[in-house]
Amino acid sequence: MREHLSMRVPVDLKRLTRDELEALVRQYYEEIIVSRQAAEITARLNVEQFARMEELNQTLERAKLELERTSNLDGLTGVANRRYFEETLEKEWRRCRRNHRPLGVILLDIDDFKKFNDRYGHVAGDQCLQQVARALQWIIQRAADSVARYGGEEFVYLLPESDEKALEVVAERARSAVEQLGIPHAGSRAAPIVTISLGGAVTIPSSSQKPDEMLRHADQALYQAKKEGRNRFCLYPHN
């Protein structure tokens, strides 16, 4: 019998014996089966590889979104951080200037927080910041509004398209929510529990103004709230 009969070599079938033809048929049949099995395995691997790639891509996208989300949050309190606040403030400032709409901010801080840390320790201080942050976040009712940790014990609300009355409502809700936490604060000059002082400012942004000016006005109002006894809200301009 002739050897090395192969599908890859042209064969003159008429020159083959019956045994050679039978051997050739068996060989072709075996090669077809092997080729089909290899093709099926390759196809299955391709499908599995494609599914795996899709899974990896989806996981990567989720990881990127989570990284972006966490990069915008304060690590201790879980509310937005100062960088995110400043970026959002710039965007809202431009939008409100373009649409001639008011923009408001409320700066606030925890009354006598240094004395709280000195008396109860920094672990208790961190827990206090976390509880206050949750309360400040909880009172937000509009999707456009946000609260961020501005630094230390200081927080800030950004309130697009809000007038003075709207700021007063948000400020009182925040002040009351923190007061209702009932966190003991024996060293406070405002109350025997943790309280906050708040200062707000509203403006209709224009090309002649900068966001820093509005923040400075809110800070002046916050100073006035502390001057008047703390645990209260003052709005710029104040009497």
Results as ranks from 00 to 15, higher is better:
206 S>K: 10
102 P>N: 06
179 E>F: 09
126 D>E: 14
23 A>S: 14
129 L>F: 08
104 G>D: 02
206 S>L: 03
93 W>G: 04
15 R>Q: 15
53 M>F: 06
27 Q>T: 15
8 R>A: 13
92 E>M: 00
96 C>I: 00
163 D>G: 13
49 Q>P: 00
110 I>W: 01
29 Y>H: 14
13 L>Y: 12
224 Q>T: 01
46 N>K: 12
233 F>C: 01
154 E>L: 11
157 Y>P: 02
207 S>L: 13
33 I>M: 12
18 R>I: 14
40 E>I: 10
231 N>Q: 10
163 D>C: 05
62 R>N: 13
28 Y>L: 15
162 S>Y: 01
23 A>Y: 11
230 R>S: 08
234 C>F: 00
86 E>I: 02
109 D>P: 01
220 Q>N: 12
232 R>E: 00
231 N>I: 02
173 R>T: 00
134 R>K: 15
157 Y>K: 04
187 G>F: 01
34 V>N: 11
89 L>Y: 03
231 N>R: 12
141 Q>D: 11
16 L>W: 08
123 V>Y: 02
26 R>C: 10
19 D>F: 09
108 L>A: 07
56 L>E: 13
17 T>S: 15
15 R>F: 03
61 E>W: 03
67 L>E: 11
225 A>H: 02
39 A>E: 13
144 A>H: 04
113 F>E: 03
102 P>T: 06
162 S>K: 03
144 A>E: 12
25 V>N: 11
217 H>F: 08
18 R>A: 15
220 Q>R: 14
138 W>R: 15
231 N>K: 12
147 V>T: 05
108 L>I: 04
